[in-house]
Design a protein around this nucleic acid. Structure first.
Lengths: 205, 205
DNA sequence: CCTGACTTGTGTATAATGGCACAAAATGTC
DNA sequence: GACATTTTGTGCCATTATACACAAGTCAGG
């Protein structure tokens, strides 16, 4: 184990391992090997061993890894051994879908509030939440001390809202708006844009 | 220009450039430079020049790139100078959100059909589409000659459906199900899993 | 036409990433 | 207890990706 700086590319693979391990645990499996895990996620066994060994000696020679133990370690490393409050900005179709999505439970996240700039939407309910006015975004997010946000708004509004989120102390933004965001280095952004993802594949067709 | 094999990592950046250029064109801009584009998308100017130069000499020294020209070249390279039919499997909340999403237009994609395994949903309408029975998936997809699919179904069903899509000739799958898919090498998969994306960022919090 | 400010495309250096192979440890069998 | 099998963690090396730097081309202004 080396507690040095971990490359982003390795951090990016950990959630993939975590997801597969969670699934194995749900299926009642107790142990696994780098080879088996690798076949499941499509990554070489050597790569997986190297990635995991960056954080400690979690495996046992001849036996492999205890799924439960590795799960807990990965959750700890990724800091999802707790539940993060997430604010959602944008109560359109995608916002609704995310509110109803059951996949945040048990994976470390919980939606804490929903905002929209459209006055006609403010006050309405989405699931169990009342849509709040985006004008109060900074103030409310600060009060809730939320560090994670999801952006499901048009591209035209995204940069301005991102800046408000940063101002409110948000450190991680999952951006569904089809535009690159400019944020300070200490703020992380991940992008989800179906057209962009599809275009990455059409090259090979 | 070198018509060699282009690394996947470069292909992955092209849609980002394309998106930014499209936005610039919409704003009435005529030319740009690798530096300006780089600032917009958060990638170094040198990187952008090198990426683009893999496909040809599209820029002009002293002037930069014609946005319109570069747009057309990138569309051509990514094969989105045409419109791809896409099948959507899974008529849940996420499926509905994607049907209503306006961001496929003008970016090379059009939903052609929707399938679901739930007999209660089959026959109902989503937007302008009638939900079709997933039992007929292979047959219908073959008949439509569709090469691109989006999967918005539970993880438990994803692998089986992916295999049916491959059997039907699909070559690109955008997978919203939270599970890694095993498909032949000639089939491309892109993953969209909000929890995974969020977990990639919580590491740094 | 000359000069200065820009900007591309690329050769080269540097850094990061991934693959291979193996010693060492754990387990099970006879 | 000896031996065959399995599997980890890691050192080494090849490959890949990024950063740097600059010659050469372009353009506007006087």
């Amino acid at each position: 184990m080396k507690a040095e700086k971990i490359p982003d590319i390795i951090v990016g693979r950990l959630p993939i391992y975590l997801r597969a391990l969670q699934r194995m645990a749900d299926n009642g499996l107790k142990t696994t090997s780098s080879q088996e895990l690798g076949e499941r996620v499509g990554i070489s066994a050597a790569q997986i061993r190297k990635d995991i060994s960056q954080f400690g000696d979690f495996g046992k020679q001849g036996t492999g890894y205890s799924i439960e133990y590795l799960l807990n370690k990965l959750r700890e490393i990724l800091k999802v051994d707790r539940v993060w409050d997430v604010v959602l900005v944008g109560a359109g179709d995608m916002g609704h879908a995310l509110v109803n999505y059951q996949g945040f439970k048990n994976r470390g996240f919980r939606i804490a509030a929903i905002f929209d700039a459209d006055k006609n939407k403010v006050g309405r309910k989405v699931g169990e939440f009342v849509i709040e006015d985006a004008e109060n975004l900074v103030e409310k997010v600060k009060a809730l001390d939320v560090k994670v946000a999801m952006l499901t708004i048009p591209a035209t509004a995204a940069q301005a809202v991102a800046e408000k989120l940063v101002q409110a102390g948000v450190k991680a933004i999952l951006n569904y708006a089809p535009i690159s965001l400019n944020v300070p280095d200490h703020v992380k952004v991940q992008y989800i844009d179906p057209s962009t993802h599809l275009q990455r594949m059409t090259y090979y067709l």
